[in-house]
Amino acid sequence: MGFIYEGLLKAFELLFNGNPETWSAVYITLCVSSLSIFFTILLGAPLGFVLGYCRFKGRETLRMITDTLLSFPTVVIGLLVYSLVSRQGPLGDYGLLFTLPGIAIGQVMLGMPIVVAMVANAVENSDSGMKDTLLTLGADNIQVLKATLWETRYHLMLAGVAAYGRIVSEIGISMMVGGNIKWHTRTITTAIALETGKGEFAMGIALGVVLLIIAFGVNFSVAKLKRRAGQ
């Protein structure tokens, strides 16, 4: 037990003394996860809206596929993106392997099903009186769409926060596509795996603490948004 206690003390030392290696992993994690969540919401929210709002042939099948993708293992996504961006892959010419945009592609694939499924559910389950109210107050179709998105805004934010929680804590994609390159693509999770493997528990714990703080922030936001969405 002693080494855990010692590791914890050293972890706080590393964090508060501004250890560049520790903070580099934190910085890279925040950069890549911000990029990923931006594109996840940008692409996922309209898709979720269409899936929840419109009635078309094959909609149920699409919903089922989306729900299945919710449990897509990160290493499988990593493998898929690796095969796409590696030199022989169709996106090989863009030089995305072992870069942050490469990791972001995989993380968008990870977060998208969460946003699509949650937004589709929110729109589908929104009060049936809402559309009638908007129409009867004189809104045209575009105004109905805009107002519906605004009315379900807390659910949209909830979807974004939930997807962010999954993105920031994944390791498979970052490891396989990013390559865990120090100062460049080493994220919190890949650094924890590496440092623990080397027996450097202190840095692992320090990064774990940061990840826990982020996770706490995410869960706190989820709880707040859930309360607002329920009102």
Binding site: D127, G129, T133, T136, L137, G138, A139
Partner: peptide, 19 residues
């Protein structure tokens, strides 16, 4: 026709209020 719905408005039994 949206123009018609801008002349006629309906108050339902359990009206929905926008958030």
């Amino acid at each position: 026709e949206t123009s018609l719905r801008r002349e006629v408005t309906l108050l339902t039994q359990q009206p929905y209020l926008l958030k």
